[in-house]
Amino acid sequence: MDQPTGAKRCSVAIDDVIKIVADPQRRHILSYLSSNSEIHCSVTELVDHLQTQATETDQSQRQLRQRLHHVHLPKLQDVGLLAYDAEAQMVQYTERPRLESLLSHVASLTESVPSESAADHDE
């Protein structure tokens, strides 16, 4: 799969990174891709993985696939974190050690902070 122009960027702007990691599904996508031994992944594999994750809203496979195709994968491609071939339904991850470190840190923070709905019940 050829990398599109956006995927060849050497660095990712901090504002882009903050916007990307602000979305839980994009964090799951990047965490999965960065922990996978293969740099290529099918959209079907991503959908299956995301459905196993505990998210705020349950989405059907069709809804999740559409959201990946129209929202998440293009945004991640635009900032150079992956290459997405919509026709072949394949994703190629671009390794970013600093981003992976940030994702790990954000994951540890989200695990240690109770959810807002749980905090509301304590009041």
Score class of each variant (00 low, 15 high):
Pro97Gln: 01
His121Met: 10
Glu56Val: 08
Ser31Glu: 12
Arg26Ser: 00
Glu100Thr: 06
Leu33Ile: 10
Lys75Asn: 15
Arg27Trp: 13
Ser108Thr: 15
Glu116Gly: 05
Leu68Pro: 03
Leu99Glu: 02
Asp58Glu: 10
Thr5Val: 15
Val12Trp: 05
Thr94Phe: 10
Asp122Met: 14
Val91Gly: 00
Thr110Met: 11
Ala7Leu: 04
Ser117Leu: 08
Thr94His: 14
Tyr32Ile: 11
Ser34Val: 12
His105Tyr: 15
His69Glu: 12
His40Trp: 06
Val43Asn: 02
Ser11His: 14
Thr5Arg: 13
Ala83Lys: 09
Ala13Arg: 10
Ser104Lys: 09
Leu103Pro: 04
Asp48Lys: 02
Ser31Lys: 01
His28Phe: 09
Ile29Arg: 02
Thr44Val: 13
Gln3Tyr: 13
Gln77Pro: 06
Tyr93Arg: 04
Gln92Val: 12
Leu64Pro: 02
Leu81Val: 00
Ser35Asn: 15
Cys41Asp: 02
His72Cys: 03
Glu38Tyr: 10
Val17Cys: 03
Ser42Glu: 01
Asp120Pro: 04
Ser11Lys: 12
Val17Ser: 13
Ser115Ala: 15
Glu87Tyr: 03
Arg67Glu: 11
Glu95Lys: 11
Arg98Gly: 06
Gln89Ile: 03
Ser31Cys: 05
Leu73His: 00
Ala88Asn: 09
Ser115Thr: 13
Gln25Cys: 09
Ala83Glu: 06
His72Gly: 04
His49Lys: 01
Ala86Lys: 14
Asp2Gly: 08
Ala22Asn: 14
Glu95Trp: 15
His40Thr: 09
Leu46Ile: 07
Leu99Ala: 06
Asp23Val: 02
Gln77Ile: 01
Ser31Asp: 03
Ala118Lys: 07
Met90Gln: 14
Thr57His: 11
Asp23Asn: 12
Ser115Ile: 12
Leu103Ile: 11
Ser112Gln: 15
Asp78Asn: 05
Glu116Leu: 15
Leu30Thr: 00
His40Tyr: 11
Ala119Asn: 11
Asp15Tyr: 08
Asp85Glu: 14
Gln61Phe: 01
Ala7Arg: 04
Asp16Phe: 14
His28Cys: 10
Glu95Pro: 06
Thr57Cys: 10
Ala107Ile: 05
Gly80Asp: 13
Ala107Tyr: 04
Gln59Pro: 10
Val71Cys: 15
Asp16Cys: 02
His72Ser: 00
Glu116Pro: 07
Leu46Ser: 05
Leu109Thr: 10
Ala86Arg: 15
Val113Ser: 08
Pro114Met: 06
